[in-house]
Write a protein that binds this DNA or RNA. Structure first.
Length: 686
RNA sequence: CGCAGGGUAGUGUAACUGGCAAACAUGUCGGGUUCAUACCCCGAAGAUUGCGGGUUCAAAUCCCGUCCCUGCAACCA
């Protein structure tokens, strides 16, 4: 087959903070399928994936495990790689951001940008969230917590290097507008334009001094390079980019990438920061960035403590590799999120893989054995009407699939392939081989029918190979044939000597599954996960304590929370004790009882109610984010607990002169605190 | 009145540049068949396309209003 040119595809590199769940693994299966398809379709493919191993969060996680950061990432990167391999991923390189060649290039890249004047030295001040590795302004915080993950934040001021984003903004806007295919799906393009590019880009902080686990800036050693600059650059360093102009042949051949396949959550980094970094380096931009949707677990929220996180290795153990690959690819629409549950998974396997495909192969092989001792030979006895339509469907499949794959509609492509198998099942009904078998004179016709079936199956299997490689190989083996090259699939009758020698011991490709049995197995998996979670938390707490990261009291509290066997069931929240305060500190806070005399919604906001609260002889205005739980009318007349001496602030443009105290549960539901007996407004609380 | 997208048979989706009886898969029910993994094939039921109005010979498709939902942004004292 002649080459259609190069095709360079990357996935996002996986963050090494823990074991990826099924949602994370969707991306690698999708990428692998696209890449295998492109290879079979005649492209010269380079496929890169890898792991992202720097950052403060890694440092903390390492301590929990009682390891050095390096040992820790070696372990998790190993786990990720194992999973990728377990899923049959055919990557050409698995890059780690710890790799020496990558680190050296990052330093050079940073220097190059600095010398060019795109990076300058400044100072950064704000609240820092370790979990997200990001700074937030005071106004972005939610109850003093990180607005993204809800974790604790702390004051941080650091000397830092900044990247002049605005310098390239116009060029980027121009590029996005003139390349409609650049951001896929298109709806994401508008989000980026309206929310970031058009309002104007802020300069991006691209270095950190607050932790060590990263790539040092070589001309200013106390800084490490911002994780995203580090991570994104893997796409070029992994194929041999050199900032000094001595890039490898691999790089020259493959850059720019044809496709960056990423999750929709990190589109911003890939469609704004990354292109701008590349502009700064004078390198061409990738051709396309596809922000795929997520595969979510249906029903209840997934959480490790409940043990209901679905991991691929469990799925593979229960269902088998190709069943898992099929499910994630098939269930994922192009633009919306998909859902996975044990039940849905079982249904898919039964109806598509076992009934339609597995049974088709099985009955074909069985008949060939039964009627002709294992040989299906084309005797040329055709029924023009019936055979003609069958052949048209089989030989027309490739073109349809190709068209869908060009736009990455993988789920639809799979459906198209399965239509071939369905058509073949129907063909068996139309020709009724068991009747032909009773008639000596029809022997040649029967042979031809079976031959046609094998031909059709082989075409389907060849198309299926990129998605379900193991299954395709098994089918080929059972029919004693080889998978076909794509450019020949438009022809019917490719088998050598017009003869299929099928196996005499057909293996069931996909067994039908019993929903209840699967449910039982899922239950076992969950129980095991809960145990592991508790064991792991105990170990982590001990390690954090030993490293002096938490106090004895905090450790005790953590263990206690785990202790109750039903803790997970009851959804017990783990409460971290904050820094101790003195009575004087407490005295500073002025709590009083207030009565809500008037309440209305804040027009421009989604969550805010603005209340007039009577405190003794005066009234203050307080804005609170409780619209989801309370209607403005029902607020009026309530006695509530108020923090009175909080510094006033503007919320959505409305002045708020205090805070209504509320209780909030683990799911974020909010309840107002009210006095247990009726007391006059203005009463002091303390 | 922040920006964008969406609400279609039990479930998941399609059609949405206005035009054939609203398509497909799964599920349910009835029938057929027996080579096969109780499978396959055929057939049926099931949607007043969120709600209300309008434009038109004709609307799921365009317009207005209204109610929900989801992203992104802002806000959550």
């Amino acid at each position: 087959m002649t080459s259609k040119g190069k095709y360079y595809l990357t996935t996002a590199i996986a963050y090494t903070s823990g074991k990826p769940h099924i949602g994370n693994c969707y991306e690698i299966v999708l990428a692998d399928s696209i890449v295998r398809y492109k290879r079979a379709d005649g492209y010269d493919v380079h496929f890169q994936t890898g792991s992202d191993e720097h950052g403060q969060k890694i440092e903390t996680r390492a301590i929990e495990e009682g390891m050095s950061p390096k040992e820790f990432v070696d372990m998790t990167a190993g786990t990720i790689k194992e999973l990728w391999d377990m899923m049959g991923t055919s990557y050409d390189r698995f890059i780690r951001t710890m790799d020496a060649d990558h680190e050296r290039q990052i330093q050079k890249i940073f220097k190059k940008m600095y010398d060019k004047g795109d990076i300058y030295k400044g100072a950064y001040e704000g609240k820092y969230c370790t979990e997200c590795e990001a700074f937030y302004t005071e106004t972005q915080l939610a109850d003093g917590k990180c607005p993204v993950c809800g974790g604790n934040v702390h004051d941080e001021k650091e000397e830092a290097y900044f990247f002049k984003m605005s310098k390239y903004a116009d060029r980027l806007i121009e590029h996005i507008n003139t390349h409609p295919e650049f951001i896929q799906p298109v709806s994401r393009k508008n989000e980026m334009m309206n929310n970031f590019l058009l309002p104007g880009l802020q300069d991006l902080c691209v270095s950190r001094t607050s932790f060590k686990w990263g790539i040092p800036v070589d001309f200013d050693e106390k800084h490490v390079v911002y994780v995203w600059l580090d991570a994104l650059s893997n796409y070029i360093t992994g194929i041999g980019y050199d900032a000094d102009g001595n890039s490898s042949d691999l790089y020259k051949k493959n850059w720019p990438a044809d496709l960056h396949l990423i999750g929709k959550d990190i589109i911003r980094f890939h469609t704004i920061y990354w292109p701008i970094f590349l502009m700064s380096l004078d390198e061409p931009l990738p051709k396309q960035i596809f922000g795929h949707p997520w595969l979510l677990q249906g029903g209840e929220k997934m959480s490790k403590s409940k043990g209901n996180v679905i991991y691929v290795d469990d799925l593979i153990n229960i269902f088998g590799l190709d069943a898992v690959r099929y499910f994630v690819l098939h269930e994922m629409p192009y633009e919306n999120d998909g859902t996975i549950t044990w039940e849905l998974m079982t249904e898919r396997v039964n109806s598509d893989l076992a009934n339609t495909l597995g049974n088709l192969v099985n009955r074909t092989v069985a008949m060939t054995n039964k009627y002709f001792g294992g040989s299906a030979i084309d005797k040329g006895v055709e029924d023009a009407a019936i055979d003609g339509d069958l052949k048209a469907v089989v030989t027309g499949a490739y073109v349809k699939v190709e068209k869908l794959m060009e736009t990455l509609h993988v789920a639809d492509a799979l459906t198209e392939i399965f239509n071939v198998f369905k058509r073949l099942n129907k063909y068996i009904d139309e020709t009724e081989p068991w009747k032909l078998a009773k008639d000596e004179a029809a022997s040649d016709r029967l042979s031809t029918v079976l031959y046609n079936l094998c031909e059709g199956i082989m075409t389907g299997a060849s198309l299926l190979a990129p998605f379900l490689p193991t299954t395709a190989d098994k089918i080929a083996a059972q029919l004693g044939a080889k998978l076909r090259e794509f450019d020949r699939l438009g022809t019917f009758g490719l088998q050598e000597n017009k003869t299929f020698k099928v196996t005499d011991a057909p293996e069931i490709l996909f067994a039908r599954l019993d929903k209840e049995e699967i449910a039982k197995k899922a239950e076992e998996v969950q129980a095991r996960q809960r145990e592991e979670y508790v064991a792991h938390q105990k170990k982590a707490t001990a390690n954090l304590l030993a490293a002096g990261k938490i106090s004895q009291e905090e450790a005790d509290a953590k263990l206690k929370a785990l202790g109750g066997a039903d803790a997970a069931e009851e959804n017990a929240v783990h409460v971290e004790t904050k820094e101790e305060i003195t009575f004087d500190d407490f005295e500073k806070l002025q709590f009083v009882v207030g009565e809500i005399v008037k309440c209305e919604e804040v027009p421009k906001s989604k969550k805010l109610l603005c209340s007039q609260v009577k405190i003794g002889d005066r009234t203050v205005q307080i804005v609170s984010g409780i619209k989801a739980w309370y209607k403005a009318e029902e607020m009026v007349g309530k006695k509530v607990m108020v923090l009175l001496n909080l510094k006033p602030a503007k919320l959505a443009g409305v002045l708020s002169e205090g805070m209504l105290l509320c209780a909030e549960d683990a799911e974020g539901n909010v309840v107002l605190m009210t006095p247990e007996k009726n007391v006059p407004s203005g009463s002091a609380i303390g």
